[in-house]
Amino acid sequence: MNDKWWMLTLVGQDSPGIVAAVTSALAEAGITLGETSMLRLGGNFTVMMMVSGDTDEQALRSLLVPVLEARGLRLHIDPIEAELHQHLVPNVQVTVSGADRTGIVAQVTTALAEGGFNILDLESDLAGTPHEPVYIIQISGVSGEPIERIEERLAPVRESGVSVNVVPVEPYIG
């Protein structure tokens, strides 16, 4: 297998069947997938896909053009280094929720970054109602600090009226 990898980013109006159309076009051209993540964000289709094959950036774009045009998708391609079969395992999970306001993610992640917290995964969502929006953040990552120290770092966030929950994560392996 060719060692060259690209990250494809596709964004557009969501509709059923996009993943099937995109991955079929890739598979038919002999392009293999690595790790991928599809999310629907505010009604938009978004996917990031590691792809590899005996190809180049121009050829990758060309083979996806029919799908892009039919589905109204935008495509971005980056050459990447692929680190496969080396997943980092999270040891801390942080959940934050509170009345929506600008800057919650910035405040939380800055406090975590100051302790060297390596975020492996972050998802945030706007819940509640249009009149009473609630922001919910779920973060998992690797920290060399004890839970109590992370709690201390996040204390100012909590004092600002946001609910913060820090729990150790120890995957059960069996």
Binding site: H85, Q86, H87, P90, E170, P171, Y172, G174
Partner: peptide, 13 residues
């Protein structure tokens, strides 16, 4: 919910 991994499924939790 809780995180799990498995000797029979390496490199995945």
């Amino acid at each position: 919910p809780g995180r799990e991994g498995c000797l029979s499924v390496p490199d995945y939790t």
